[in-house]
Computed example of a mutant assay.
Amino acid sequence: MFPAAVRWSDCEPAAVTRVRVGTMRGSELQSDQVEAVSLARKRDRETQRQGRIFNAKLRTIGIDKDALDYQVRERKEQERKEADTQRSYAADLLHSDRISCLLEQRQRKEQRRLEGAILQFRRDFQQPENRREFDLNDPALLRKQRGGLVLPGLVGEDPGSAERHRRQQEQMRDWSLQQRRELESARLQQRLEDQRYEDSRITMDHRAVQLQNIEADHRRSVAMATKDFNLAMAAESSERRHQARLQEEAANGEEILNQLQGPLLSESLGYGDRLRRTQPSSYKGMNQDQLRQIRECQRQQVEDRQRAHLEQQRRQLEWDGRSQAAEHHGLLLERQQARLSRQLRRALDSANAQLASEQRTQKDYLEKEVFTNSPDSRYFAQFNTTSR
């Protein structure tokens, strides 16, 4: 038995509880009545509306303003009533919360007092030494027996418990080893798959980088060859313009000198003889030396022209060879790039095919295992049952 000081006194909590229950029941009954009246009124209006909407003879095209105004007034009235109900519920809730807090505080205090009394009672009257089964759980039982021997074969003894315990331990060890091997095998398989995926990704990245490098080298070589060709053509054109300008300046200087030193400006009768020129009035034809000089000059011009033509042919052949070499090198680079592109495309096609297979498998699983509940006529029959 517990002490009289720790008995539960429920006079005040019971009274407070009855007040709370009565308040809540009254509020619930009032709200239920209001809800029932509102629900019946809604049902009547819905029945009347269905009679107007679903009757083809009475239904008209347009808007029922009276019904809409009535709905607006009803909605405002409903909102006002709901606000009043919410305010009353809030007031009841605050009152109930205050009572609940008071009851909870008192209950905690009484619970602490009761627990303290129980602990004190256990310390005073329920010590382990006073229990009837203490002799079975006494930790000092062997010391109290004073050397007494336990006879073999007593009732309740299990001679095969050690062997059974050993077999159970071996079975548990085998299960543990098997689970560990399965876990390690799964982890190894996952690591191998991750490594294969990483190797394939690295290989594709390397191939893409090689293709980019080859394309960049090809563009660089074509740009360098074009630049060299343009520079050479520009230098050759500049040299030709320079030579033509020098020749033109020399010819102009010689013409100016001839005009200055001519017989018209100098008015010298022996000037033509000193310059090896013959007066038109005294000219009788060229001698052998003059003819030989003219032929020699012509032969020299022919040789110069031939050498210039041969040099031009040599330069043209050299540029043709360079152009062919550049085209051949570009063709080789394009073939290599096309080969690498085909390899990369095959790898991407294989990866896409694998992804497509996995997606098809997942789609079949979803269609056959997950989404198996298709709608029937009962699902569509629940629509168009009201006038709203």
Rank of each mutant, 00 (worst) to 15 (best):
R314M: 06
Q247L: 05
R322G: 03
N252Y: 07
I256V: 10
L366I: 09
R207T: 05
D199G: 08
A381R: 00
Q288K: 12
S176L: 14
D304P: 10
V209M: 14
D135N: 09
L177I: 06
R73N: 07
A244Y: 01
E267T: 14
E74Q: 07
Q111M: 14
E115L: 09
P375C: 00
R45P: 00
N130P: 01
T278A: 13
V37D: 12
K81G: 15
R180N: 05
A223G: 10
R299D: 10
R132C: 06
R73M: 09
Q111E: 15
S38W: 11
L192Q: 07
S357F: 08
Q313L: 08
M1R: 04
S27H: 04
L149Q: 11
G270M: 15
V21F: 00
R219T: 03
R345S: 11
Q178G: 04
T85Y: 09
G148L: 12
R143Y: 14
Q243K: 11
T60Q: 07
L149C: 02
R346T: 13
D138K: 01
Q126M: 01
D10V: 00
C11I: 08
M24D: 08
L366T: 05
G153I: 11
Q189R: 15
D138T: 01
V155M: 10
Q178V: 03
Q178A: 05
L275Q: 09
Q324F: 10
R299Y: 08
Y89R: 14
R220V: 02
H328R: 00
E74W: 08
S9T: 06
F383W: 06
W8S: 13
A36C: 01
T385V: 10
D64C: 02
T385D: 08
R43Q: 12
G22F: 08
Q105D: 13
F125M: 02
R59G: 02
G253V: 12
I202Q: 15
N287S: 00
P3W: 03
G148V: 04
M24Y: 08
E249L: 11
F121W: 07
G272S: 02
Q169K: 09
M172R: 15
E369Y: 10
F371V: 06
Y379W: 00
Q50V: 03
R166M: 01
P139V: 00
M1W: 09
I53E: 12
M172P: 11
V19N: 04
E129K: 13
E254N: 10
R314Y: 04
S357P: 11
D32A: 10
N55Y: 10
V19H: 09
M224K: 03
R108D: 14
Q145E: 14
Q259R: 11
M286V: 10
I53L: 06
R241A: 13
L39R: 13
A83R: 15
R219I: 01
D376Q: 13
R25C: 07
Q33V: 02
L103H: 05
L119Y: 04
S387K: 01
P128R: 04
L344K: 15
R295S: 01
H242E: 15
A208H: 02
E74I: 06
R378L: 14
S282A: 13
N287M: 00
I63C: 04
G330P: 09
R276N: 12
E367G: 00
Q247M: 03
L114F: 13
R123A: 05
D273S: 14
A140Y: 15
E239K: 12
R388N: 12
A244E: 02
E367M: 08
L119N: 13
S350V: 06
R18H: 04
I61H: 12
A5C: 11
G156L: 03
Q30M: 13
L310F: 15
